[in-house]
């Protein structure tokens, strides 16, 4: 089973990102479960979205305590209880303009992959809407869902700017892809 936690702040689209990710995996024939948990409906407060993906129906009805991957919309959230769900093998994709070396130093022992979601969003005319770029980055890091499935899901399901969001997703995917190639070289 693949277990992913997306953490953002209310209004950033972390909950929708979880839905889109689950929808894309489902489109590839996988069994999925995605749920969000939040307190009061306020902008700016932390929002978690939990995604489970498996080849058999998912029965667990509890939080993810040890994640295979984290997608963090805001580097300031990468601490405490959320960071505690990551182990040495967990892939952490974080929305940040800082280089990988910064996180290697700041969070030793973690596999952190930064991606500048804001820059990608602005380049694609999406303002501060970073979730599509970050989903592309996560899909590349995790190895699924396929980029074509994810962009098709995003184009079909996003409330507006489907084409721009799909383009941002491709850009996010590419950034992590080149980062991983560089690290492997």
């Amino acid at each position: 089973m693949l277990q992913i936690i997306i953490q953002g702040r209310g209004g950033q689209g972390a909950q929708l990102a979880g839905t889109l990710l689950a929808t894309a995996f489902f489109a590839e024939g996988r069994e999925v479960q995605s749920f969000s948990s939040y307190g009061g409906a306020r902008r700016g407060t932390p929002v978690s979205s939990f995604i489970r993906v498996d080849d058999k129906p998912i029965r667990l009805r509890c939080d993810i305590e040890q994640a295979d991957a984290l997608l963090c919309f805001d580097a300031s959230l990468l601490e405490g209880k959320f960071l505690a769900t990551a182990g040495p093998r967990t892939l952490i994709v974080v929305n940040s303009r800082r280089p990988p070396e910064h996180f290697a130093q700041a969070l030793p022992g973690y596999r952190t992959l930064p991606v500048d979601g804001l820059e990608i969003a602005q380049r694609n005319g999406l303002g501060r809407i970073v979730n599509s770029a970050l989903l592309g980055a996560l899909a590349c890091a995790v190895g699924g869902p396929a980029l074509a499935t994810l962009t098709a899901t995003i184009a079909a399901e996003t409330p507006k700017n489907g084409r721009e969001n799909a383009a941002a997703c491709v850009d996010g995917y590419g950034r992590i892809d080149s980062q991983l190639r560089k690290a492997a070289a």
Partner: peptide
């Protein structure tokens, strides 16, 4: 149905 674990869980 339980809050979040069922009410907000997206599944097939």
């Amino acid at each position: 149905l339980d809050a979040f674990y069922v009410s907000h869980a997206l599944e097939p």
